[in-house]
């Protein structure tokens, strides 16, 4: 293979909070870090460049493990982004409903429509109560669910990296990353 093709290269832009972890993972698949720099425009991005020999043994298997690892990192990011999506939506919806019911109820009461006013005011109170009770419950549930998912994904990352290390003849394959 000619010299200019003898090294494979890969360049990544990674989230700053995961950059150090990712930097440790890629060498498990035979990559060597060649460059690293902070993004000039965005504070939460770092750029990493790696290279490895084109004819590394077990290349197919290493590629498969590496891609699966990358997918797990991106899924963790998605989990973190969507963690409170359901509770936030519920909170917002109930809050808006509560305000609207309160406004409507007040107007009806002021115009001496007692029944309607009381009904809407009650609905408003129930909405706010739902926010107060349901919101935290949902937050706790989401926390627990995403924590489990993230924990599983992180375990899989470690497994892929350990297998990668075994294939590349790295250090003790059972060492945690």
């Amino acid at each position: 293979m000619r010299e200019e093709f003898s090294k494979e290269k890969i360049a990544l832009s990674v989230k700053e909070d995961k950059a150090d972890y990712i930097k440790e993972c890629y060498p498990c698949f035979g990559w060597t870090l060649t460059e690293e720099w902070a993004d000039r425009k965005f504070f939460d991005l770092r750029h990493l460049a790696f290279e490895r020999a084109w004819n590394i043994p077990h290349k197919d298997r290493l590629q498969y493990l590496q891609v699966r690892m990358e997918m797990r990192f991106n899924r963790i990011q998605t989990c973190q982004r969507k963690k409170f999506a359901a509770s936030s939506s519920l909170f917002f919806a109930l809050g808006v409903a509560g305000v609207l019911f309160l406004a409507g109820g007040s107007l009806l009461l002021l115009s001496s429509r007692l029944v309607g006013g009381i009904v809407l005011s009650t609905l408003s109170a129930l909405s706010f109560l739902g926010m107060a009770i349901g919101g935290p419950l949902l937050v706790r549930r989401e926390n627990r669910r995403y924590a489990e998912q993230v924990s599983l994904l992180e375990r899989e990352i470690v497994e892929f990296c350990q297998e990668g290390r075994r294939l590349t003849g790295g250090e003790d394959g059972t060492k945690e990353i």
Partner: peptide
């Protein structure tokens, strides 16, 4: 100086090739 903001990149890592 330049002001650095939050990136629009949604994924934890992105291959730049």
């Amino acid at each position: 100086t330049i002001r650095r903001g939050k990136s629009p990149q949604k994924t934890a890592l992105h291959i730049k090739t």
